[in-house]
């Protein structure tokens, strides 16, 4: 009982027949081959499987792939452009926002959601913004610094862009 879905993932349109019970995270990893989206708790708690679903951060272990029919998905693989790390990725690199890296893709996409809603977040807002993502290595402090680095980098880049116009 397959169902045909069309999903835009990182700007590319995919069309597949899927079983309705296939979870979005399994679709992304096993069908599309984008294994940057991790499976952690599988109970919508840890946030390792976070992706952007029409721009909103969601836990892809708690969505069926069929629900994504017609949607636009962004995974961690879709953030870098032309080999240039996204400012949030750069922030995690510069500020040691990871140790084992397992939570990192989800953490970065949660941060992406946060910065799109709140471009200059306070530390409190950053902590709230990643409340749905667990990290068992860093103690979070370096992650918060990484997100603050990214917010600043995005701001400077935007102002630089505005000046050059």
């Amino acid at each position: 009982m397959g169902r045909t879905i069309e999903v835009t993932i990182n700007g590319l349109l995919y069309r597949h027949d899927v079983e309705p019970r296939l979870l979005l995270v399994h679709y992304l990893r096993d069908v599309i081959g984008l294994t940057g989206t991790h499976i952690g708790c599988e109970t919508s708690l840890c946030g390792a499987c976070t992706v952007l679903f029409n721009g909103a951060a969601v836990k892809s272990c708690t969505l069926f792939a069929v629900q994504a029919d017609g949607a636009e998905i962004t995974t961690i693989e879709g953030l870098a452009e032309n080999g240039q790390l996204h400012p949030i990725q750069e922030g995690f690199w510069m500020k040691h926002g990871l140790q084992c890296g397992y939570c990192t893709p989800g953490m970065i996409l949660a941060a992406h959601q946060l910065l799109s809603r709140s471009p200059d977040p306070s530390e409190e807002e950053i902590r709230r913004g990643i409340e749905g993502n667990l990290c068992r290595c860093t103690g979070y402090q370096h992650i918060i610094e990484a997100i603050r680095y990214a917010a600043e980098k995005i701001r400077v880049t935007r102002e630089g862009g505005a000046r050059s116009k």
Binding site: V58, E131, G132
Partner: peptide, 9 residues
Amino acid sequence: IGDVQVRNM
């Protein structure tokens, strides 16, 4: 309720 991702869905 829950967290950001949960409230989005």
